[in-house]
């Protein structure tokens, strides 16, 4: 009935490294340029929880297959995807944006306050491979919170 999701609730220790492992390859070379740039797909089409939950959500394999059962099935990367689907396996995507465990961040509150996705994630429509464009440091968060007169109380973000 329920599937245990790992990753979302991992209890790892913050390493303090600011550099994203953007050079490392993803298990499937997914292109935001193609999907959200050329095909102009809305972010919310795939990241379905962003308005409802603290996490935006990475699309399920089923979601990908919804289109790719028919589209571009010859593409070698899509073939990888189909293999995952055939085996009913989850895709272990590599995380680009990581927050330490002691920080609470809610996509829901930011999206509902009309913060554009691109303000933090950059214009992914132009990225073949997503790069980390914001430091996610506390100073970076606070700059924006102050500018937009959002709360700067410690307890709002520190959990």
């Amino acid at each position: 009935m329920l599937v245990v999701m790992t990753g979302l609730s991992d209890v790892a220790v913050y390493s303090g490294n600011e550099d994203a492992p953007s050079s490392r390859t993803q298990p499937v070379l997914f292109s935001h340029l193609t999907h959200s740039g050329q095909e102009k797909m809305a972010c919310l089409y795939c990241h379905i929880y962003v308005e409802r939950s603290s996490v935006a959500g990475v699309p399920s394999v089923q979601k990908c297959i919804g289109c790719h059962e028919m589209i571009a099935t010859d593409d070698p990367e899509v073939k990888k995807l189909l293999t995952y689907w055939d085996n009913q396996e989850a895709i272990p995507w590599r995380k680009i944006y990581h927050l330490p465990d002691f920080v609470y961040f809610s996509h829901r509150m930011h999206v509902n306050a009309h913060i554009e996705c691109s303000e933090c994630h950059g214009n992914v429509a132009e990225m073949e491979v997503v790069k980390k464009v914001s430091s996610l440091s506390m100073g970076w968060c606070l700059d924006c919170h102050k500018k937009k007169e959002a709360p700067v109380d410690c307890n709002v973000c520190h959990k």
């Binding site: 990753g7 979302l8 939950s53 603290s54 996490v55 009913q88 396996e89 895709i91």
Partner: peptide, 19 residues
């Protein structure tokens, strides 16, 4: 930095919202 993974559902259950 150690690689951290984001592992989505293969088929999302209806009544579960991650987080």
């Amino acid at each position: 930095e150690p690689v951290k993974n984001l592992v989505p559902f293969v088929i999302p259950p209806e009544d579960v919202v991650p987080g």
